[in-house]
């Protein structure tokens, strides 16, 4: 029996679970971060306190955070997704805020002078111009989340981390590689896809 006969099916399942974790948590994180980023950009004074706070929070190791959440939420996928979504949020939130703040003041004035309402200004001028920065944040958080999702197995919830932990525990290098390589490939492929999307959307925007 080869390695693949033994583990092939399991690896494919693990890749699927891992990918779902990433997809769901990044999606949730993206929406929340976008909304928060926009709100923060409306009151830049608040951002001066909020952004450093977030930076500090970000330095808490994921292991600790998942561990704490596990105590409250129990051994459910929701624990993993909540933790990952919160971590995925940070880069997007920061980039959304920065992207919006970097929109040229003269364009904002032109938009006001043209009689755009604040909402029109946001959706027709500011957000389109912040798109490259926002997608940059999305890419970063996707890549991070792929690696953080490895921690899911720490509380026994599968994903590619399972192979890595078992591999380490049993001193089985093949298992470690079987977990690490698909995770790395997933990170690279997702990053490339997002880059491609960014380039297309940027060209369309003519920015």
């Amino acid at each position: 029996m080869t390695f693949f006969d033994l583990y092939g099916q399991k690896i494919i399942t693990a890749i699927g679970v891992h990918f779902l974790y990433v997809l769901i948590s990044v999606s949730i994180g993206f929406v929340v971060a976008l909304v928060l980023g926009i709100l923060l950009s409306r009151v830049p004074r608040m951002a001066r306190f909020v952004l450093p706070l977030i930076s500090i929070f970000q330095t808490i190791p994921g292991v600790v955070f998942i561990g704490v959440l596990f105590l409250y939420l129990g051994m459910k996928p929701v624990t993993v997704i909540t933790a990952l979504a919160i971590y995925a949020m940070f880069p997007i939130l920061k980039n959304t805020y920065v992207g919006l703040m970097e929109v040229d003041a003269s364009l904002i004035e032109a938009a006001r002078g043209c009689g755009m309402s604040p909402l029109e200004r946001l959706f027709e001028v500011e957000l389109p111009l912040a798109v490259p920065s926002i997608i940059g944040g999305l890419r970063m958080s996707t890549v991070y989340t792929v690696s953080w999702a490895v921690l899911a197995s720490m509380i026994g919830l599968g994903g590619l981390g399972e192979f890595i932990y078992i591999g380490i525990a049993t001193n089985n290098n093949a298992l470690i590689v079987a977990g690490a390589v698909p995770a790395a490939v997933m990170a690279v492929v997702l990053s490339l896809l997002i880059d491609l999307f960014k380039r297309r959307s940027v060209r369309k925007a003519g920015v």
Partner: peptide
């Protein structure tokens, strides 16, 4: 907002929306 729609406005920085 309504007022500004009835008054044209041109600025030094041109301010064309690049998108």
């Amino acid at each position: 907002v309504q007022l500004r729609r009835k008054i044209g406005y041109v600025i030094q920085e041109i301010g064309l929306f690049p998108n």
